[in-house]
Amino acid sequence: MPEYTLNYYIRSNSARGYASFFESNFSRLRTVVRLDGYPSVAVADIVGNICADALEKNFHVELIHNCLDNSLEGVIVPEKSAGVINFPLYDEEEFSVAAILNDENLHQTFAGLEAARRHFAAALEIHDRWEQIYISNMDFAAANKLASDTIERVIGGNTLAKKGEQIHRFFGAATMDGSLDYIDSLTSHLAKRYFIKGRPGTGKSTFLKKIAEYACAAGYETEVYHCAFDPNSVDMIVLRELGLCVFDSTSPHEYFPSRPDDEVIDIYKTAVAEKTDEKHRSEIAAIMTDYKAEIAKATKQLARAKRYYDEVQRGLLSKINAGALGNMEKKIHDKIFESW
């Protein structure tokens, strides 16, 4: 059987607007089947059948999830250098027909998504205030040394005789059901996991970016997982050729060591002035309350968008001929598995 099946996202409704890493994941493939506006139930059948066949043939599988409701929206079969991806009607393509369709449910879907992003943006401004507390108490020299020491331990002088590559993704998403992640799926077959602990503003993302840049320069394929809330930040680096990952294991994706070789790297203890948490306890509590309130409002708007988009999909499904859809599924399946 294959060593692993990966689950991840390539899109996010973030505090900085709609973000997509479609190109990073699909431009490297020889065969790409692009579906436009297929109902999610049809996509799930197409993806599920490809996945089942790939696993039966002992191929690896990468399953791509929708950032709104966590449904399946794509699949990549690396051994075939082939993949399928669905672009929902609410996807923000520059020349999408959705923009000119006179469909009130679709208009309400866009309105819900835009409202959610406004609340996420408000939450990011609050989060920036939270970060300033720790930035003003940081020992940046100590943080830089910790990053250099970690790079030495993780990669050292190891290099590969090939050009490195970065692949950008999200391991989680802010969905209509709240924050979800696939860290377990992405790290289950790695021998070594480094858990980064810290606080907002303590440089966890900068720390991870330095490792990613060094690894790529050393010839490694580097999976770079961005923060779904703020895509400018990085939350995890995976180096499968070295069998390891380094990730930000703080809320909302807080994990703790559970294997013998798991290791914690604590930036807060190393580079933040003692008792910063205690000195700013009241201020931090107030910021957290405001932050969580905005996130809750955003989540509510995502659920609203999903309700309206369900109505759009019901309308589409009523017009689809089951036989024609079955024939299309077969053509897609054949194109994936007949590729080179």
Rank of each mutant, 00 (worst) to 15 (best):
T159H: 09
T270R: 08
I332K: 06
R281M: 08
D334T: 12
I267N: 01
A228D: 06
K331E: 14
N144T: 09
E241H: 06
I336S: 02
A296T: 13
V84C: 02
S81N: 10
L63P: 02
I284L: 15
N66A: 06
Y214C: 04
F256N: 09
V32N: 01
L89M: 12
I284Q: 13
V234Y: 00
Y4V: 10
A273K: 15
A215N: 03
A19P: 00
S185T: 08
S339L: 05
T159N: 06
S188E: 14
F110M: 10
K204P: 01
K269W: 03
N66I: 00
S40L: 05
L72N: 01
A123N: 08
R117I: 09
D184I: 08
L244Y: 01
T222W: 00
I135D: 00
I151Q: 03
T187I: 09
L55Q: 14
F22Q: 03
K204D: 02
C245H: 02
S136N: 14
D248A: 05
I155V: 14
L35C: 15
A116F: 04
F110Q: 09
G157T: 10
M328L: 15
L106R: 04
D177E: 14
A191Q: 12
L317D: 04
L186V: 07
A15R: 02
F59V: 07
G315V: 08
D181V: 06
N137H: 15
G37N: 03
A111Q: 13
A218F: 05
V234T: 07
K269E: 15
R314G: 15
Y194M: 04
L180D: 02
T109V: 11
L186A: 09
R16E: 10
K80I: 07
R193F: 06
A52Q: 13
I76C: 03
P88K: 03
T5V: 15
H60F: 04
P260Q: 10
S339T: 14
E3Q: 11
M288Y: 09
G243C: 10
D261S: 13
I211R: 01
L244Q: 03
I46E: 00
A111C: 08
E56W: 08
L89D: 01
P257I: 04
D310L: 11
Y309F: 14
F110V: 09
T159P: 00
L146E: 01
L6F: 08
Y182K: 11
K57S: 11
I320Y: 12
S12G: 13
G219Y: 03
R199A: 12
G83P: 01
A303Q: 10
R30D: 15
N327G: 12
R28G: 01
I46D: 00
G83Q: 01
Y9D: 00
D103I: 11
S282M: 11
R169T: 03
M1A: 11
R28I: 10
K306S: 13
K80A: 10
I76K: 00
A293P: 06
A82Q: 02
E79F: 07
T31K: 15
K210M: 11
S258E: 14
I183T: 10
M176V: 08
I151S: 01
R199L: 04
F170G: 00
I155T: 04
E94P: 05
A141R: 12
T5C: 09
S185Q: 13
H226S: 08
I265M: 01
A82T: 05
